[in-house]
Write a protein that binds this DNA or RNA. Structure first.
Lengths: 138, 138
DNA sequence: ACAGAAGTTTAGCCTGTGCTACAATTTTGC
DNA sequence: GCAAAATTGTAGCACAGGCTAAACTTCTGT
């Protein structure tokens, strides 16, 4: 009933892009916070994700090691060029998913919540389709 | 641009239902495997998720502790009533998301992959909407 | 029936993300 | 200018989920 296609294959893809999801969420958040308040501090991220500053700190450290974020001790957090590119892509994708959900008649609050969860799992192919449909519908 | 709604709230919801995602994936898999091959063994799950049998074993143990799965040492894995109910709900939700993606004109393979990732993040409200739309379109 | 194959468990390691408690630094307000 | 507040960093814990290696149990075939 469920899938006509191979069963094991989808999971290999799905299963734990979780690693990258956090990265995507954080660069997106940093970009957003910088846009809104000029600089992004650790506390801002901690509040944004409702985690302790310690957790935020460790994730920032990891993403710095991965070349997405840049910061100095006790200094604000910035995006590297690579991080900026990723953030832009994520924002666009997020935007498309969110607007698509709205176009289905989902209320704003629900659409915002669902878009957060869904965005990381939409393939480029599906994303293009959603974009088309959003453009058509308004 | 992005969200008209509160920024911190979506994340509190999104951030780590990851715990439950694994549970959902596993009960769904167990149900599917039992349907197809009568019994579900550890190796079946390990292959299904493309992880080592050791990893599968530990997750099964956790889900048994949580009352979703039932098994005895060296014996097949079964669903508890609670696990069965969860599996059924997940299968239905999965089905709806998958068929919805197909109805958008996404190819089967892509739809299968994306449905895997997306299903856990679709709220009941959005799910009902998708169901309506699938029913209408075919 | 019993050896080898298949399947399962256990031990022990790693990484990521969560926390509290406490130390250090920077900012702020008198 | 200096104490208090805010912010950031560090130490050390927990748990989930990833692994390999090795031991143990069950199944299979001759």
């Amino acid at each position: 009933m469920t899938g006509p296609t191979n069963k094991s294959e989808p999971h290999r893809r799905t299963r734990r892009d979780h690693a990258t999801e956090t990265a995507e969420d954080y660069v997106e958040a940093v970009a957003e916070i910088i846009t809104e308040r000029e600089v992004c501090r650790l506390v801002d991220l901690a509040k944004y994700f409702a985690v302790s500053h310690v957790t935020a700190n460790r994730i920032v450290a990891r993403l710095q090691k991965e070349g997405l974020l840049q910061t100095e001790p006790y200094q604000p957090i910035e995006l590297t060029p690579k991080g900026k590119r990723l953030a832009d892509r994520c924002r666009q994708r997020h935007e498309i998913v969110y607007r698509f959900l709205l176009s289905l008649g989902i209320d704003q609050k629900t659409a915002a919540i669902d878009a957060e969860g869904i965005e990381h799992h939409v393939s480029p192919k599906t994303l293009r389709k959603l974009e088309q449909l959003v453009d058509q519908s308004g």
